[in-house]
Design a protein around this nucleic acid. Structure first.
Length: 254
DNA sequence: ATGGCTTCATAGTGAAGA
């Protein structure tokens, strides 16, 4: 079973690419972030035509998350139950015996910003919410755009970004707190010490120069990690015409 | 360079992303 995550930076703009990618990759589950769509504008029929079902949480202009699946989605949870969030950043659904949790974590802008306080509160709430999920489900996949590069190896220019947004010790501790609940960072586990990235800035030819960061992650509980041997960060999608600034990331669970 | 691009928005010394 192939399960993927992709920050598409506007589903309206990226829909043809997403449909083509789903068809070509034969992914079973795809978690999307940054739909940038009003809830009622979600293109459910386009996915249905390809044989997929979906659960989504839209928002005008910003944010928005979805889970696309070949199999039915049950117990859909929109937003964290313990955090009244005006922004659409969390959706969870049960597919077979797997709890799939798709997140678009807060960016934070700068450590001195009010948005950074929101980021901290958001990750706090996520930890609390995950404790509840882990108490109910043995097999959990937590995936999405975390807006945290967990270590210096995940950053092309680590010195330049040291202590800054996405790379600060504080944010990295929040990421470690998630892992400590009982998750493994699947891509890092499989990639060992490779320098690999999932996001490249649109500016300064960052993709061509491979100046990226690994901020999109797939976290697995132990039973699932045990059955996972293969991953990919699909740079061909990032190299396309009018791409998202994020590449799709997937793992294959036996 | 608190910039450099891209998206969605509105007519803002734009806002937000990462």
């Amino acid at each position: 079973m192939k399960i993927a995550t992709w920050n598409v930076n506007s589903l309206k703009v990226r829909l043809p690419q997403v449909l083509a990618w789903l068809d070509e990759q034969q992914a079973d589950i795809l978690a999307l972030q940054e739909l940038k769509l009003e809830h009622d504008k979600f293109p459910i029929e386009a996915f249905a035509d390809l044989g997929f079902q979906a659960a989504w949480l839209g928002q005008k202009t910003y944010n928005g998350v979805a889970i696309i699946s070949k199999k039915p989605l049950a117990n859909v949870q929109c937003n964290m139950p313990n955090f009244a969030d005006p922004q659409s950043r969390f959706i969870a659904a049960t597919i077979d015996d797997i709890r799939v949790i798709c997140v678009y974590c807060v960016n934070g802008e700068r450590l001195e910003s009010d948005k950074f306080q929101y980021k901290q509160q958001w990750f706090n709430a996520l930890s609390g919410c995950l404790k509840q999920e882990l108490a109910q489900y043995q097999n959990v996949v937590l995936l999405g755009d975390f807006n945290i590069a967990p270590d210096d190896i995940d950053v092309a220019e680590a010195e330049k970004h040291a202590g800054k947004i996405l790379c600060s010790n504080e944010e990295r501790q929040w990421f470690q707190n998630l892992l400590a609940l009982g998750f493994t960072d699947a891509v890092r586990f499989l990639a060992k010490d490779e320098k690999i990235y999932s996001w490249w800035d649109y500016r300064m030819n960052a993709f061509r120069r491979n100046l990226g960061m690994r901020i999109d992650h797939i976290l697995l509980t132990p039973n699932l990690m045990q059955k996972t041997m293969k991953y990919q960060i699909d740079k061909t999608a990032r190299a396309a015409e009018r791409p998202s600034d994020h590449a799709p990331v997937w793992v294959e669970i036996q």
